[in-house]
């Protein structure tokens, strides 16, 4: 029964469906470990730059939008909840419920991107985009530019991952609605969920590093 609806995915080199799912989940975790170090370079760069330019980072930290950043954090945390509910629905074979939670997750992801895009737009208007339009001329301008360079690279890379996640979720929602998954076979949804939660984890760290610096 494990092979129901899975013929396209069935690979004869696995002993059984369970081995296949465990292998896929394990592989996803290894992939996420590489992602940790991929983002990690930027976190290391942030740490070193902040240690060297503590004052400038405090000045620069006042120029991010803490309200929008906090709303976005809540949006993303909520999308993790809906994703977890989608995976759960998928694991018991409720395909409509699964598709609905997936769609809601994707919508929250789009909302996040919209808010983020608005923030970037504001930064552009204020001339806070290093290399393209940087008009800040207060004290410690080079260090401030460094902060915003990291801000754009890190939130940009995060947004790129989020966009990929939204596209994958959209495809999964479509497949789920068409009945491609069952209680016995729903590995792609589990993997999508892991990826989505990982994006959330990255943001959990970006939030204090860019929005909560120097609020006191």
């Amino acid at each position: 029964m494990a092979a129901e609806g899975t013929s396209a995915m069935a690979a004869s080199h696995f002993a059984d469906a369970e081995q296949r799912e465990t292998a896929a989940t394990f592989g996803m975790w290894i992939f996420l470990a590489t992602e940790v170090l991929f983002f990690g370079v930027l976190f290391a760069g942030y740490t070193v730059s902040r240690v060297q330019h503590a004052e400038a980072f405090i000045l620069a930290g006042r120029h991010t939008d803490v309200l929008l950043g906090s709303i976005n954090t809540a949006v993303l945390l909520t999308s993790s909840l809906t994703m977890a509910l989608a995976v759960r629905a998928g694991s018991v074979g409720w395909r409509r419920s699964c598709a609905a939670w997936l769609v809601l997750t994707a919508v929250l992801g789009v909302a996040f991107l919209a808010i983020k895009g608005y923030e970037w737009h504001e930064d552009w208007l204020q001339g806070l985009v290093p290399g393209l339009r940087f008009a800040y001329s207060g004290p410690d301008a080079p260090g401030v530019e460094l902060f915003f360079f990291l801000y754009f690279v890190m939130t940009g890379l995060h947004a790129l991952h989020l966009t990929i996640g939204i596209l994958v979720i959209a495809v999964m929602a479509l497949l789920a609605a068409r009945g491609r998954f069952s209680a016995a076979y729903h590995t792609p949804i589990v993997l999508t969920g892991l990826y989505w939660h990982f994006i959330d984890v990255v943001w959990i760290f970006l939030y204090p590093l860019f929005y909560l610096v120097s609020r006191s």
Binding site: E21, T22, T25, L77, A183, V190
Partner: peptide, 27 residues
């Protein structure tokens, strides 16, 4: 295979309560 002893997703649907609770805790 040591990986198969405890699979990431149980066969039964876990109750949703802890997900909602976790959401509140995170917020």
């Amino acid at each position: 295979n040591e990986l198969q002893q405890a699979d990431a997703v149980p066969a039964k649907a876990p109750p949703t309560g802890r997900y909602w609770l976790m959401w509140l805790v995170l917020l």
